[in-house]
Design a protein around this nucleic acid. Structure first.
Lengths: 220, 220
DNA sequence: GGAGATAACATTGGATCAAATCATAACGGA
DNA sequence: TCCGTTATGATTTGATCCAATGTTATCTCC
């Protein structure tokens, strides 16, 4: 997310970044224990920077620390993920509504370029690339709403959701539909049709939600 | 926010809580430097827990840490605050829309009780109490939307906004209008009138935004 | 054999220390 | 007098140590 790139980073910041990436990329799974000594040795740091890194990640909500009991990767249950998902849909809809009056031809073109890239990756079977472009497309959508905080919250949620989905597998059937939805959305934006845009986003939300729920065991 | 209340807390957790409260209550102002040694002595801890506390607050976005240069309270500029404000309005609107079908008489009554409490505090000149009740009222509004993540984001934003407003002063003129708006909103909710509810929230947003902008020097 | 107490082990938590880095002040030369 | 350099002090950073706590395995007693 917003890691300082301007200067050489600390050991603590490096460790934070590495662990965050490991969590979000699925190398470490939710609920897994994070021991300072073990991580320190594996990453080549002392335990000190690790303690700071884990605290920072706790602040970000990715890690839970219980006193005298250590740190674990935050567990992702159905309620948490579906809340995040719903929140992100709300954020996209609100952002798009605000974005429409601000739309320029250049902005629409940049969305089209990403949609095209997405189709190409799907056609070429490059799944990981497609997922990345999908993220970029939606981030740009929210970005055009002009609210940095909304974008930050959105990206955080997106990354957590996808870390979760990585563990449970994606629905490959939705890939092509997604490409169509992107196109429909772009056309709605071109017409400055907020109602249609919202409808598309809500449909997408419903479909993805169904996909998610079908993959998760019912709430305990 | 989500501090563990179940067990006795660490020095690090205690320090985190104390510093967060100091920031949000305005005892420490934005941009101010946070030296580990100084804080450690003042709070009666060693420097170690302080380092962890500052890292956690960095993760929460309240504190900024620059490598080899130390920690400072995050600066709150016009863009950041107005973004947070806009985001919170969006969150309230989306939450209310979802809350309406789920409304019970009991829920409406609990909102009414808070609105009444608010009026009483205003009448009695108890400003701080009124502010707290106002927070509770809006939190409940979002809570009824049934999305925990949305609530968490909302409360975080609310607290930061009010930490900022504390430094710049509140508009006392809006107090009574606010009480009326609460009542109007409750009536709209009773009628299950989502359009009216949204309109009220948007009006409120516009008024508060104007109030905020008038208090802040224009963006640099 | 099973349940509870006890002991051994692993891990976290807090403190202290030395090195690295940054900020500030003093100094010297043009 | 002003600017660049150097030296001093303050602060962060990383490392290591010991105590406190939690966990696990072992042993004893019923």
């Amino acid at each position: 997310m917003g890691e300082p790139l301007d200067v050489a980073e600390n050991s603590a910041d490096q460790a934070t970044r590495l662990i965050r990436e490991a969590i979000l990329s699925g190398q470490i799974s939710p609920g897994e224990r994070l021991k300072t000594a073990e991580l320190a040795q594996r990453l080549g740091f002392s335990t000190m920077p690790l303690r700071e890194a884990l605290r920072k990640l706790e602040g970000e909500g990715l890690v839970e620390i219980e006193p005298n009991r250590g740190a674990t990767v935050r567990k992702l249950d159905r309620a948490y993920i579906s809340d995040l998902f719903e929140l992100n849909t709300d954020l996209r809809i609100c952002a798009v509504k605000r974005a429409i009056p601000l739309l320029t031809l250049e902005r629409i073109r940049s969305l089209e370029a990403l949609a095209q890239e997405y189709r190409d990756h799907i056609a070429g079977g490059q799944d990981l690339e497609a997922i990345r472009v999908n993220r970029d497309f939606n981030a740009k959508l929210v970005e055009f709403g002009g609210n940095r905080e909304a974008l930050r919250v959105f990206l955080r949620g997106w990354d957590i959701i996808f870390a979760f989905r990585r563990g449970y597998g994606y629905g490959t059937g939705r890939r092509r539909v997604m490409a169509e939805e992107m196109q429909l959305l772009i056309e709605a934006l071109r017409r400055h049709d907020a109602v249609a845009a919202e409808a598309i986003l809500r449909m997408q939300n419903a479909a993805m939600m169904e996909d998610l729920v079908s993959r998760i065991a019912p709430e305990v």
